[in-house]
Nucleic acid binder design. Structure first.
Lengths: 342, 342
DNA sequence: TGAAGATCGTGAATCGTTTCAAGCTACGCT
DNA sequence: AGCGTAGCTTGAAACGATTCACGATCTTCA
């Protein structure tokens, strides 16, 4: 396939390439008759602008967006999440996308599937494409990765993680863990358990630590850790069976996320355990399903949309300010949502 | 920011640009000492290849992937889904991604949010970037859109929809609706209802039609339609209340998807209705949550991963075969998964 | 010693678009 | 008639990487 170029459009319309480009980018500079002829040629030939050439020519500075035919566009932002199937991640990313779209920017999503190698590949892809920036829930990035992105002129914003010298937006998970623990204590629960997924990421560690510290402060018991193989409802079911098999069954459970908590609660109920009477369950995230679960879930809400929006704004600011940009670490506060499960 | 180019790397390493390019793409052609010098320069300068220039030069033919430094990559495929928060869509897309990754291709996700304008913008973005192809759950595409994509040299595969002259992969939703209806009839249910989301997409219409036809064939009653404002658990809750308010409460409900069915079932149970004894509920999709729901959901399974994989293979074939490619419409068969809810 | 390879490097041409100084017309004004 | 101006259009020079025919050196062997 020979890929129709601006040159052929020009020939067909009987004008120069410069004129075609003008029609595409500054139609007001072109006489109406000419404009129409060019537009017709574009349609007839099925011409689609080659963005690679455009970007190559334009250099890194690309402007927002003048009115245009085949829409001239600023480079897109990438959103790289750990797991597209996780409602927490996709909600954050959607919040970010909305804000970016509002600013006229396109968004590409990539997923690392918790695999550092895939994460790196995705980052390199964005860097090579000279994306405007990337918002990333990191799973294994190091400073060299960040340096490479910066070298490609990209803005970098970390989600749910912090690192000096890089913009980031996250919630205070230690505080989140603390409010969960407070709630369980207030309900008079003392045989507690923390259920989480396997390769403990920092945010989960923080939640546990926040809870554990609160318990310690209240002279309350320890917070044994139950590690499942993922943060999914299926893992939650397994966790329920594991807890019930314990010599001393807990009366309060704090789950690392809502999916886990929902699976766990459902399985408990199915096995005849009353929630919250026999066992109180607290989740984390407040995903949509938490409210409509069989036992509406008490949980620690993360302001996910806002998190995404805030991250998007940091990225846009970094892009706009260039070298003058001051990196900022945003920390939002999570909030306990009391429903039925605890 | 001046964006370090291959030229500066060359200068720093004391070689020509051609040699740097060779180090990048065919390192075996370069003497070891030179290679090391160039690699060092690349590292020191934080050089990142400009993919725009590469693609511009390479033209549409881009090859798979020789061993390389800064990985040279074939153009990516786009996956454009209607709604990233929908587990059906993300599972299909993940199946596709896995297959494409296995073939050494990168994948970018875009979401149309059910908005035809946003869909078009995403397609145009991919076309302008000269992506290798796109797998799309369409929400408003027309033939002109497809022509534009083709003109940009892209492979196009429709997911969950069919259209003459375009590759597609989907399940037979009429059959899916039929097995659901059969199940309800087998359970002796006759006051049935169909619950769905608002702007009825074709696949949902098909499900309903399959069910309605089966009922008609069995001389069984009509299948009244209840339209909610989305296919979400929250909408399912609302649907439950609406059904219970009916003068004649149904004893069997077929939901357009699992999220709806889960929300509906949970709300019914909470309101003291027994599922399936009082009301049997059948969902559609068999998402992960269906199995671990409070009342494990009887549902019509779509082989989502396979669907994605099949679509990916169609796309790869189209890319490989070029003009010789024969467009194919794949139709897979859904399967009833009996659990507790019906 | 000298010729034929083998091994490495070079540098100019190229991809498709944008940009911009310069050119061309037609028109109005003095 | 002469000049200035406004309105359009042109054509060539970038942008950064890849490619490839061609040189330059070095080995090897008669």
């Amino acid at each position: 396939m020979p890929q129709t170029s601006i040159r052929e459009v020009a020939r067909r319309a009987g004008v120069s390439v410069g004129t075609v480009s003008n029609v595409l980018n500054r139609p007001d500079l072109v006489a109406e008759a000419t404009r129409d002829r060019v537009r017709a040629a574009i349609r007839e030939l099925g011409f689609v602008r080659n963005e690679s050439a455009r970007r190559l020519r334009q250099g890194p500075a690309a402007q927002p967006e003048p009115p245009a035919e085949t829409p001239a566009r600023a480079p897109a932002y990438g959103v790289l999440v750990e797991d597209l199937a996780n409602p927490y991640a996709s909600d954050v990313a959607r919040g970010a996308e909305r804000a970016l779209n509002k600013a006229g920017r396109d968004v590409l999503w990539l997923s690392s599937d918790h695999d550092p190698a895939k994460e790196r590949r995705g980052l390199d892809l964005l860097a090579a494409q000279r994306a405007a920036g990337v918002l990333v829930i990191p799973v294994g990035m190091d400073d060299a990765d960040i340096a490479r992105l910066r070298a490609a002129g990209m803005a970098v914003v970390l989600l749910d993680h912090a690192r000096p010298g890089v913009c980031s937006a996250r919630v205070d998970h230690v505080a989140g863990g603390a409010v969960a623990a407070d709630r369980l204590l207030a309900l008079g629960r003392h045989r507690l358990a923390f259920v989480s997924g396997r390769p403990e990421p920092r945010p989960v560690v923080d939640r546990r630590e926040g809870a554990a510290r609160t318990l310690a402060g209240a002279q309350a018991g320890p917070l044994p850790l139950f590690t499942m193989d993922a943060l999914t409802p299926t893992a939650g079911q397994a966790a329920a069976r594991r807890l019930l098999a314990l010599p001393e069954v807990p009366d309060g459970v704090f789950c690392a996320n809502d999916l886990l908590a929902i699976g766990l609660t459902n399985e408990l109920v199915r096995l005849g355990v009353r929630v919250p009477d026999d066992i109180a369950v607290i989740g984390y995230d407040d995903i949509e399903l938490a409210a409509s679960a069989a036992v509406p879930l008490t949980t620690v809400r993360q302001p996910r949309r806002e998190l995404g929006r805030a991250a998007a704004e940091l990225a846009l600011a970094e892009t706009a300010e260039g070298a003058a940009h001051q990196h900022r670490q945003l920390i939002l506060t999570p909030e306990l949502i009391v429903r039925d499960s605890a």
